[in-house]
Design a protein around this nucleic acid. Structure first.
Lengths: 351, 351
DNA sequence: CTGAAAGCGCTTACAG
DNA sequence: CTGAAAGCGCTTACAG
């Protein structure tokens, strides 16, 4: 082989008249290199526009990166969280040989203590990076403080948490999401129809994430001539039966022509509309999971806004990969497209 | 190192009591291995559930895969084709170290001869795989025949070509796309309004791809009570001025409340509506490129259906990567989501 | 039909 | 402060 054909560290070493070990030291900014040598090597690296071969790097290094995944456990009501796992697995099948070791920590989405316990356990296990679904705000903040202490990088999916600075956030821009729904409404109802914006929970919901959707939604109507009422209701119902009571009562006193369900339970409303055979109320929901899709297919839901949870998982994993392994810079916020889903295109968005 | 800790080919070789060269021969199904030896090795591979390390494979092999990209050259009117290139470049930044060498062959989308010339040149250059935008049907068919002779794999983007069997097709399901627009129309107009479905070309368009959209669109209306007329018009106009003549004349004799432009030139209509200040005609277009987006922002276009050209490029490249390098099976058809784009969410879809 | 050896472009002890 | 050498898990001539 001709000397001029050498490439990579070898060529740098040849030009600098040092060994590749020294080049490696400079490359990784390690100590123990004479200032003069270091400068020389650095200038050669610059000159060659040297890019390390990531394959060789990963093959040679036995370092395995441990990534923790802290998300709600799946239950019949919330199979939503299967999707990000699928996304992570998909990414893993692409990047599996690169020395990454994902570990899942599931918590009960109704139980703060379980979030705390699982996040503790995850940190103790010595992870390098984490993917977290920050369902509980205060507990997430506590968690992120600990991450900083331990120099653990974390990416948040689904919800942005104020005052917290993750490696990256991946999810929807809820304000824009609300605006999109606002725009859709323009076509669904007339200018003086009333709208009900609904947040349906099983228990008290402390998250203020949903407010952004409402803000965006209302913002849309500020800029167009709309004279109807927008009624903003948040309810807690243990189950569907109680929801029926609520709706019966609500519709006795109000006359909405459109209902926008800002969390995932649009199917409650759809089920109700079907039960009572109400056909003159349009329905827009969020989140494309099975229950909702069923009613979308039957026509009880007009539109769903998809949260793309699979993509969230995929991108979250990829972000950790980019940061730790490819050593590329990652964007602080990765807002996913706000997909509008109908009876005709839902197949492409199903979780 | 303990023998039991060996992994990969070495461990297979140890268990089979052969050298790794022999293991390699079996792994790649090469000749020159005794049947008995081969069987033994195969059973060990099975038993270990051996998965080759793709990093080591690529690092050791000096084989570089040449991928040709045959797409229209970008001109001011059609900057659309920048997007798939961006997608390919994005994929390249992820997979660049794997030994792939993409080469671009640009042809003039108005000139069949240039397509033929460029495809010839691409084939002669000895590519392993190709990404092709099959603008010209007959010429594409000729090309694919040659590909088969030369054992070149190709993936098609944007248009599905009948009778041709690519490694994979990546693009939109136009029938479904038409149906989605049909659904949107339900909200945009009343049951007895008229609709104009428009195909605007600069010269004679032989592609029958657009028919699928029309079929899907009409199919939607077969299943709901709609009593308006759907007028299906395909026009050839050299420029905007001639289009104005056409529209003036058309609107004198017809009264559409919605115009669905099935190819990329919705901005012609938007520009016209703006020129004549027509505000009672809804407009739905296809393709999110700059001209269209401008009018979407201004409100002259109500919806755009996005073709996701960047994703097409990314996925096309990834498909060749999966096939040639990762040696995974790839799906014959990869339909992309049919994204509905509005003034509020276009930022996520801009080419 | 089979194996020993060099090499891909890096990292990682270890020795000086 | 610096370098020689082994090794990551494969592939690739080459020799027998």
């Amino acid at each position: 082989m001709k000397a001029s054909e050498l490439s990579g560290v070898k060529e740098i070493a040849r030009r600098a008249n040092v060994s590749i070990a020294t080049v490696d030291r400079v490359l990784h900014n390690r100590t123990g290199v004479a200032q003069k040598t270091k400068e020389k090597i650095l200038s050669i690296i610059e000159e060659m526009d040297y890019k390390p071969n990531i394959l060789a790097k990963r093959l040679a290094s036995k370092r395995v990166f441990k990534f923790g995944v802290l998300i709600p456990m799946v239950n019949p009501d919330i199979e939503y969280w299967n999707a990000p796992i699928s996304g992570i697995q998909e990414a893993l099948s692409e990047y599996g040989d690169f020395g990454v070791d994902p570990r899942y920590y599931f918590f009960d989405s109704q139980d703060r203590q379980s979030f705390i316990r699982q996040s503790e356990e995850m940190l103790i296990s010595g992870i390098d990076g984490a993917i977290v679904s920050p369902i509980f705000i205060d507990e997430t903040i506590d968690f992120t403080v600990k991450c900083e202490k331990r120099k653990v990088q974390f990416v948040l999916i689904e919800y942005e948490i104020p005052m917290v600075s993750p490696l990256s956030f991946i999810g929807q821009d809820f304000f824009q999401s609300g605006k999109v729904v606002g725009h859709l409404c323009q076509y669904l109802i007339k200018g003086n129809d009333n709208i009900l914006v609904l947040n349906i929970n099983k228990e008290k919901d402390t998250s203020d994430q949903m407010d952004k959707k409402i803000k965006g939604f209302e913002h849309y109507f500020e800029n167009c001539d709309f004279n109807g009422q927008i009624d903003n209701v948040s309810i807690e119902v243990p189950g569907f039966e109680e929801f029926v009571f609520f709706m019966d009562d609500y519709l006795r006193n109000n006359n909405p022509k459109l209902i926008y369900v800002i969390n995932s339970r649009a199917y409650y409303v759809a089920k109700y509309l079907k039960l009572r055979d109400v056909k003159d109320i349009k329905l827009v929901g969020t989140c494309c999971y099975k229950n909702n899709i069923e009613f979308l297919k039957e026509g009880w839901i007009d539109f769903l806004i998809c949260l793309k949870p699979l993509e969230q998982g995929y991108k979250a994993f990829l972000t950790l990969y980019e940061f730790f392994i490819a050593k590329r810079k990652v964007s602080k916020k990765q807002y996913l497209p706000i997909d509008i889903v109908t009876k005709e295109n839902y197949l492409y968005y199903e979780n």
